[in-house]
Design a protein around this nucleic acid. Structure first.
Lengths: 344, 344
DNA sequence: TTTAGCACTCGAATAGAAAGAGTGCTAACA
DNA sequence: TGTTAGCACTCTTTCTATTCGAGTGCTAAA
């Protein structure tokens, strides 16, 4: 177990390193106003902390640097809860102030604001529309061979896709189909749409139409839109600010990862509720070795629908970022719940 | 005027520098099989070429490096027309082979393929939909205060936007409006849609509806969608491969620029027809100082609708890239014209 | 006109040497 | 017994000097 003094010294070392990015030595630590121990004493404690794995040295006679375990302990036990400045609060509130822009725009704004406030990289996974309910379905024929399927949800989200029409289908028939579809499928959540298309409408169609199967099938296929939200990344180049990323290869690794949508999905895929902190190799991704990731999911009602995250160096301002991410995710949850949860 | 031998030497210097990224010296040049002059002769010619501004030295006793003027001359007069490998042709053709994916997807593929083929960064400005014609208009009410406007074009492109509904509007009235809109506006190009909404429908609306102005106005506003295509960038991190971009500040400059959509639009905004080459400071953008840009627009019929571009170091493989960009832009023009120009 | 020869320049690489920051250990101290 | 002063030691960084090599420019000869 750690003594109070060790905790204090560990905390002050990490705080200092987060600020300066320089290995911290006993002499400089002792100079601080709020430290009343001699360099020698501090050296002893440092040696102990290193033995326990909380600190590391970059070489035999350098100052100490927090290890991953050190950061972990710091985040779990030593974090002084940060508070937000008024200006930060208003900035965050303003993101969702303007409903008119549409949800996507708002989510993108969230990413921008987040990266500007932190000067790290922000990642926002837009809400998935699974549980949004069908408001209206349309099939618009484009020419003899193709048509566009359009799905409007009760949240105002629109999905559309081109699909091919079978030979010799009549516009009038399509109109009938659309009527049946709307009649039967309004209110169905997107996640269930594809199955219900068949279950709910087949019989009616059979009765009133011939040759409906092919169109229905194509339509059902076109409706299986992406079940996952869109990804927005803000401040991609902020990583260039970090002194430990002077190395072009390191930057490249991270940048490459950011270009791969799939990797990013995996990275921030929500695990538990609340704010999550993943430090360095705690992230599965190789490229994240020198980075930390702070995520929080936001919800509509009790259902988590998306994630916001901050990607920065391991030497991140954990306290501030955690507060920020926590605050924004709650804000988003509140706004979205108020907006969309009136439906249930 | 330049002598034949000077041309030859200039060409061979630039070719060599493009390959090696190293300043080229007289001794090494003379060693090449196809060079039959002595180092001393070459030195004399080099001195002349430098005096004329086609070459530069990085320091007093270094080899020569092409100047911007040198590249310009090289591109304008010395380029041996490249040819494409069969595999490259098929790769390009395959981009638009699959119509079903939709235009956007295809354009994005074009960006990916371009960057993979060149290992530079590719930029593709998706087709603007200005001259696409309205196929169908919809207004779907979401709740009492808001509705979604949907515009489907004859190319299968769908635009949609949320807008607010004035108080106390009846669903039946909206339906009437939609009917009028479709009746009067089908076939109108998107670019003229906004004006025509008023010009063509006001009278009919007045006759059959009251209180239509507000909705019509909101709808018109919502229809003024972006008049410009979407931007796709492929291989953003390819710049890391270039040895002259070992400097993190240079990379940052370029990366920052790539994140700013507006700058990118400005950068590749089409000027003239055909393949354009802009070398270094010929681009207005400060960040492009050490880069070259090769652009070509593609068309539907005679109307240019979008642009493809390659962004690389000044030391770019001009010949190959020009051929590639030229080929792809023509291919896109062909495919798109065949697809969409049957309408006129 | 071309080329061989040579002195000269400059950058890159190499090797010490010195400075500076920091450590670990021992011994003295409160 | 915990704390601290002192000191030798380690390792990085910085500076300087030197050397090496690639390349140039100029002159004179072929």
């Amino acid at each position: 177990m750690l003594t109070d003094r060790q905790l204090f010294i560990l905390q002050i070392i990490i705080d200092d390193f987060i600020r300066s990015a320089q290995p911290v030595g006993s002499r400089n630590l002792a100079k601080k106003d709020d430290v009343s121990y001699s360099p020698a004493t501090i050296r002893n404690e440092m040696a102990d902390l290193e033995e326990m794995g909380f600190l590391e040295k970059t070489h035999t006679s350098s100052g100490r640097v927090p290890s991953e375990k050190g950061y972990r302990y710091y985040v779990d036990h030593l974090l002084s809860p940060g508070s937000l400045r008024r200006s930060e609060r208003t900035a965050i509130h303003s993101v969702f102030a303007d409903r008119q822009e549409g949800l996507e725009k708002a989510v993108q704004n969230a990413a921008t604001i987040l990266s500007e406030l932190t000067s790290y990289t922000s990642i926002v996974l837009g809400p998935k529309f699974n549980d949004h309910k069908v408001k209206s379905l349309q099939i618009i024929p484009i020419d003899a061979q193709s048509a566009v399927s359009i799905i409007v949800t009760d949240t105002g989200h629109v999905e559309n896709k081109i699909f091919s029409l079978p030979e010799g289908i009549e516009p009038a028939d399509i109109e009938k189909m659309v009527n049946i579809l709307n009649d039967r499928l309004t209110g169905v959540p997107l996640s269930e749409l594809r199955q219900k298309i068949y279950k709910e409408t087949t019989e009616l169609m059979r009765r009133h139409l011939h040759n409906y199967e092919a169109v229905l099938h194509m339509f059902a296929e076109a409706s299986g839109g992406s079940p996952i939200g869109k990804l927005f990344i803000g401040g991609k180049t902020n990583i260039f600010n970090q002194p430990e990323f002077r190395d072009i290869e390191k930057v490249r690794l991270v940048m490459d990862m950011m270009e791969k949508e799939h990797d990013m999905y995996e990275l921030i895929r929500p695990t538990e509720a609340g704010v999550q902190v993943k430090i360095g190799t705690e992230n599965a991704e190789q490229a994240m070795e020198d980075c930390s990731l702070i995520t929080a999911s936001y919800s509509v009602g009790d259902e988590p629908v998306g994630t916001i995250a901050i990607l920065g160096p391991k030497r991140m301002e954990y306290s501030r970022v955690i507060t920020l991410v926590d605050f924004l995710s709650h804000d988003m949850t509140n706004v979205l719940t108020r907006l969309y949860n009136t439906r249930t």
